[in-house]
Design a binder for these strands. Sequence first.
DNA 1: TACATTTATGACTTAAAGTCAATGACTTTA
DNA 2: TAAAGTCATTGACTTTAAGTCATAAATGTA
Lengths: 201, 201
Amino acid sequence: MNKRRQAAEETKKKIVDAAEKLIAEKGFDNVSVDDITSFCGVAKGTFYVYFKRKEDVVQDIGYAYFSAVGEEILAMKESGMAEKLRRYSEKFMHGVQRCGIRICRQWIKNVLDPADLPENYPSKYEFDVAMLENILQDAVEVGQLSGETPVETLAHLLISQLYGMMTCWCMSGGTFEPKDWVGRFADEQTERLFAPYIKKN
Amino acid sequence: MNKRRQAAEETKKKIVDAAEKLIAEKGFDNVSVDDITSFCGVAKGTFYVYFKRKEDVVQDIGYAYFSAVGEEILAMKESGMAEKLRRYSEKFMHGVQRCGIRICRQWIKNVLDPADLPENYPSKYEFDVAMLENILQDAVEVGQLSGETPVETLAHLLISQLYGMMTCWCMSGGTFEPKDWVGRFADEQTERLFAPYIKKN
DNA sequence: TACATTTATGACTTAAAGTCAATGACTTTA
DNA sequence: TAAAGTCATTGACTTTAAGTCATAAATGTA
């Protein structure tokens, strides 16, 4: 990699880090692009070199963490669906807690306007869908899920659970431990949620 | 009621109706306060007589519909919890469908920033929580729910389901019939969701 | 060394939210 | 019933912040 590209990537990282810190502190709507750029010492125009719109920076926050999670889950070749789903729920909520309420809010908001996302831009939502479809597809191939209901539909059911959890956490002001929630939810509820689709034999 | 107050209420209704029509058509972010006021023929300042901030008008959209629903459910004195919850889910999703994706998005977004709501302003979210707590409290008193887990917690569980449904519907671009979803969800899933909290005897 | 490419800049344009002092229609009261 | 008082309404104005773009600087290439 040449010096120019490397410097550019560092610049982008500086912007994302500044955005993460400031948005976590004050909330998206109370942080201006000027705030972000002056905080990390670049010009306003530089922001718009890397992001088409102010909202787009939110997609990059937490990206490194969730990429790592993805790698980890995909590597769990020997584990079954339940194990993978549990791990994924845990990591999901851990990321939620780590990034904070205000950033989660913005993730959810971005999810609600998927049409407005720039093309070829992997949103957190698309990432989550892909992960869950992958896990479920494996379960179909192994014969654990009947496969009658499309994997896509089941993935959406689960996504609504995960985003529901995240939304609840935001609404509660972050007052409960996501860990507890995952314990109660990922085990009890997910099992219940899936019961009708599990292959009987 | 005197002539002035009546005129004022008509003015407010004109604004809310215009806002509903325009936001349903173009989405909240693509409608300016100027658009709304010029559409219904009042001055911009008039908008700010009735609403502190642009976002606040969204709370009033659908208000008449959901008030009526509330009355209806509260009047179902003879019905049990399951019946009431089913009816409520149906009405909830009917309202969702009636008001449209763009308005639902804004409801969800507003829910995510509860702290920013003006005081003494009943948000759709607060309305939903109150309704569900009421239904569940009755079930506790009748002895149908064990009451070990606080009603508030269960209400939140359900709210996350309802808002999850609404969010999914928005994400899918409104491509499925909420009715089908309620059938699958309100019956199968809600039953499953509540199973561990139902009193055994 | 000279030319090309990529990255960074910040003053500028544009858009829209929100304010407020002035107006006059309606209501009260003496 | 006319003067005093109240309250909904107005729209020009202020303010804030998003997003643009011509230019400059740094790096890479021939």
